[in-house]
Design a protein around this nucleic acid. Structure first.
Lengths: 238, 238
DNA sequence: ATGAAAGAGTGATGTCGATCACACAGCCGT
DNA sequence: ACGGCTGTGTGATCGACATCACTCTTTCAT
């Protein structure tokens, strides 16, 4: 039995969202075959936790279908979302490589599928195929840059407006038109946005009002139209 | 001509601060020899910049002697210090691996020495010696964790007091006595501390007063005595 | 269709830390 | 010893945001 698409990302890179870029695409035939042997696939409902902050790392997950949010919490219950992942992303890689507990919690934001590769098999796999080790290093390096950008945002951007503008810009990079406008489908609650930019739900609510009032954006149902990226950029470097 | 120690970290891991842990220690004879061929050593005065944020990555630096601070700035001039490095640390690795500009500025905080390995030679070296590639992946993974901790601190710890307490704790891990006290040599100005915890110089000044008043620490000249780690920890999880 | 739950808007209030503005201490070269 | 640094201590002020306390809207299960 086979899902219509995406179930086995290893066989059909063509349908993979990230195609060539993907960590496990375009491997040698042997490597690819080996990978198929050690991976297993599962489907997850919305809200499912792939893994939880602090758990011993069992293995890596390759997200095939669906979106997931990575978050971390303090003891008092404050939560920040550090990353939103979608098809093609490899989750839990750092924890597995360095043999530490998962540093974040990964929760499915919508139903989806993921391949799982147990830690031991994965490390063995890396030893057998050095070509993959280099790819892994590059992926880790990319993870680092993402984390680093987060640090810059949290550490340097002072006001919530600035962080909010940054977030909108990061969402709209792909869909920007020639005139500087862009459309984004909004699947997040204000609460979640607040956890990304490190503020409160109420403040996010007020930011929406403010940005709409200033003609920076328009909300049409679940899609969000950005009037002009340059205008947002001016807020960011303020 | 040869400096008394540390000039050539590759030959004498015994004198290396990180010994076995070090990225380039305990390599095979061939790898070690090759590394010696491609590296070059230089001394740097206090205040010297090893590299600057935004520069195209020329290669990696292995810090032998001296401390360096890694920082990043926003256009408006606000600066945050993301890491303090000392002997054994490898700087610029991420930028070289992923072929991006250096993401931080590395400035010597005291006179020191560093080995430099040009980008091309380094990447070639990794291809020749897959054993090293795995080590690099682990190092990158460690870098990631450091960055990640930074995110937690900036994103979850709210008040400056909390961040300050965290910083003191991180400084005093190694020198903690049985009774929970610890001594730290303080080489940073209040300004620099402010750039680490993301606040202003004045606030740091007031934090010193407050912590001294609360008997959390005592300042004796350039050394800083922490009365009780548990007391600080209570502030952190507040 | 209807009630409950989740999400979103908005006012009132209080507080913490940034900012500004100084005074003062220590260090260094001449 | 003298100004010129750089670093530090501290008060006064002010504004942005968190917090609280609601109401209103949307969604969804039964």
């Amino acid at each position: 039995m086979r899902a219509p698409y995406g179930l086995n990302i290893l066989d059909n890179c063509a349908t993979c969202p990230m195609r060539g870029q993907h960590l496990f695409c375009n491997l040698s035939a042997q490597a690819s075959q080996r990978l198929n042997e050690i991976k297993s696939t599962a489907v997850y409902p919305k809200g499912a936790m792939l893994f939880i902050e602090g758990q011993q790392a069992r293995g890596v997950f390759v997200l095939c279908v669906g979106k997931a949010k990575l978050s971390t919490s303090s003891r008092e219950g404050k939560t920040i979302i550090t990353k939103l992942s979608d098809g093609g992303d490899v989750l839990g890689l750092n924890a597995v490589i360095s043999n530490r507990p998962y540093e974040v919690t990964a929760e499915m934001m919508e139903p989806g599928q993921a391949n799982f590769i147990p830690r031991d098999s994965f490390l063995q796999f890396l030893k057998e195929f050095p070509e993959v080790a280099v790819r892994v290093a590059q992926q880790l390096s990319r993870n680092y840059y993402t984390a680093y950008e987060e640090i810059r945002t949290l550490g340097l951007a002072v006001s919530p407006s600035e962080k909010f503008a940054k977030l909108l810009l990061s969402w709209s990079t792909k869909t920007t038109q020639d005139d500087g406008s862009a459309q984004v489908k909004m699947a997040l609650t204000h609460e979640e946005i607040a956890e990304i930019i490190g503020t409160t739900r109420e403040t996010v609510s007020r930011l929406f009002s403010e940005f709409k009032r200033k003609q920076l954006m328009v909300v049409k149902g679940a899609t969000l139209v950005i009037r002009s990226r340059p205008a947002l950029e001016r807020i960011v470097q303020l």
